[in-house]
Amino acid sequence: MRAIENEFVRRFVVPAVASTALYWILVSIAYRNDYYMYVLTMCAINVIGATSLNLINGFTGQFSLGHAGFMAVGAYVAGSLTKFGHWPFVGALLAGMAGAAVAGFLVGLPTLRLRGDYLAIATLGFGEIIRMLIINSDKLGLKFLEGPRGVPGIKRYSTFGWAFFFAVVTVWILANYIWSTHGRACGAVKEDEVAAEAMGVGTTTYKVMSFTIGASFAGLAGGLHAHLLQLLHPASYDFLKSCDFLVMIVVGGMGNLTGSVLGALFVTLITEALRKLLELRMLAYAVGLICVMLFRPEGLFGTREFSLGALRFLAPRRPVSQVGGDKSGAT
């Protein structure tokens, strides 16, 4: 019983307390500065996008380049529900997630038979198809989506508080999924599909499941993004957006959840910090990426995950037998 209580503290209480504390620290730093608040909100949204892409690319080994497409689905569903349907914000976000999950499932089912480069090209194509459908939405009977002009006048519901809350929940859920028997099945799919099948892991099931879960959280990021920019626009969700997420998880380390959180923060903050350089910005960004790949090809954080065990040095020393030996998750 004690072990379960300890687990409860480790899994629920500590993450809740730690993230609340982190929230208040960040808010007190950014207090009354709209720009800082905006950057922090963007960070939280990108954390959601990057970690969910890492579930697909890093942990299940299915190279997807269509993440922005699912973000667009979430953004358009959530945005039009609050604007035209007068839905409550959270309800609309969840509907956006559901929409993106359906899209992910429908895209995943046929494309996940493909491997490696072929899958990358197929998902890239699907991302673009979603964007093209939106651009032509006014001709397809969805007049209110205004096609390429986009939908202005979305309410700014995405406060830093909401974005932060959803980012924490996302990372928590993904960590729990990844460090469970289902997450290990995904790892088996990534390592060797033939062996995974021979060990009784339904590879198609797990590929589609990871893809659907990843897509749904991309939809969540999209919903938050739309209510931050106050605009639904197809150009916000193009191929470059997918690449941004890819850069975040590669910089952070493929198959490393802590890495993709920090990679998302790193890339978002660097992009903002480089604004002063004007035209040279993209050049500096590119040089930075090349340097990361040259000197840390495994990503900035390699394979090391943050866990409560890493904070052990803060606590008084205990006999080794009491320290949980199991690999525990991030958050």
Binding site: E7, R11, F12, I173, N176, Y177, S180, T181, H182, G183, R184, A185, G187, A188, A196, M199, G200, V201, M209
Partner: peptide
Amino acid sequence: DNIRIALHMRANCSVPAAVFR
């Protein structure tokens, strides 16, 4: 983990149970 993956098939743990611990 190699062994645990092989035990996955006969494990009785739903995805929601894993996600919400």
